[in-house]
Design a protein around this nucleic acid. Sequence first.
RNA 1: CGGGGCGUGGCGCAGCCUGGUAGCGCGCGUGUUUUGGGUACACGAGGCCGCCGGUUCGAGUCCGGCCGCCCCGACCA
Length: 434
Amino acid sequence: MRLSRTLAPTLKETPAEAQIVSHRLMLRAGLVRQTAAGIYAWLPMGFRVLQNIARIVREEQDAVGAQEMLMPTIQPAELWRTSGRYDAYGPEMLRIRDRHERDMLFGPTNEEMITDIFRQSVKSYRELPQMLYHIQWKFRDEVRPRFGVMRGREFLMKDAYSFDLDYPGAVISYRKMMLAYMRTFQRLGVKAIPMEAESGPIGGNLSHEFIILAATGESEVWYDAGFERMDFSGSAVSHQSEADLERFFAEMTTPYAATDEKHDPAAWDKVSDQRQGRGIEVGHIFYFGTKYSAPMGLSVAGRDGIPVVPHMGSYGIGVSRLVGALIEAHHDAAGIVWPESVAPFRAAILNLKVGDPLCDRVCEDLYARFAGAALYDDREDRAGVKFADADLMGHPWQIVVGPRGAAAGVVELKRRATGEKLELPIDAVHARIG
RNA sequence: CGGGGCGUGGCGCAGCCUGGUAGCGCGCGUGUUUUGGGUACACGAGGCCGCCGGUUCGAGUCCGGCCGCCCCGACCA
């Protein structure tokens, strides 16, 4: 992408409405624009990040056997009356009416809908277990939206739903999801810790929230430093092995970890390697049994022909919230420092002298070599402007092409995360970081 | 929803108390200059002063109503 042809309106000054660092940086780096309180338009740079996060979430959901689908944003009120939540949900639910005066709503979540869909077509125990998910926009009419996309009214969320024949089966699904979550957050470049949670308005009794660590986080967290050393990548844990899952689950839930509400000073004293910090909730998983399946009449024929009411769970990840949360976890005074896995571009090519035949040629060659993975700053601006914008936008690498170096056949490579710089031959750049 | 604050060129703000036809910095355009960390100078474009109504010869400024946005708290992926 050529920056001169890209809608990436960077700002030197911070808009007055933005308070927290991620919100300021998202506005300044031109990732989003606010449309109304808690509602944002995603500009090209921000959208690329959002897509990258969604891609990783999707890959890890698929990896544990969840199936992707897509449910609508608008739902009929009728569906919510069958579970009793239409009246219970309160003003957070955006209620709308269509031209036929039918009550509709902009979905804040999809338990009713998925249960209804599942009920229509699944009739036998032979078809269970199943896990389904979608990545879709949700709306919750927060009284007070704030913190930019971290607490918006409209937000992109991955929500998954599991259906099992019984409690032991549901526990296995629950553990698979926990594994998928730990892998997801690890790939997103953040430390995440599962903490036991209240099950809240959705109900149930097996529930964890996933908190990622960030100095500017919203809540205080206490945890065992052992969490920092865990590695979920690779094949150490197989989602197809119940024994693996059980061991994994024990590893996740045994060491101490708690937020303010559940912090227990007595238990905390017994932790040998204590860590205290701040965190942001980015995911939440629940087991809620037959809370929806029973009242909504979902049942399948069991092995003996007798109807069985499936046990369900639901599992959310705040995809759009993660964009803000990742910035909270990864930034410095100059701007965003994207983890490599989600950065809008792997590298920015900075042409310090647009119009100079040699610089132009070197940049064009490099740009072609990166085949879409690099952002080319071809604007006719001063070097300082380009350095500042590249730092602000946070691409992992900056490839600096100036007349002096180009004449000598070298460019400067700067690593955004550390600030370290090195000169290397033009031909070596792509091999080094491509 | 309780408490507080703010709406003035794209962004950040002054002007409002003490009405007289809108200003500063950044950004934008043109030219010169500069040429590896937001260069300097000159010229220029750009504003139903959130909306509606009222007071007045005259309203960005005073009065009333409405709308929008932000902050603290209670609440949440």
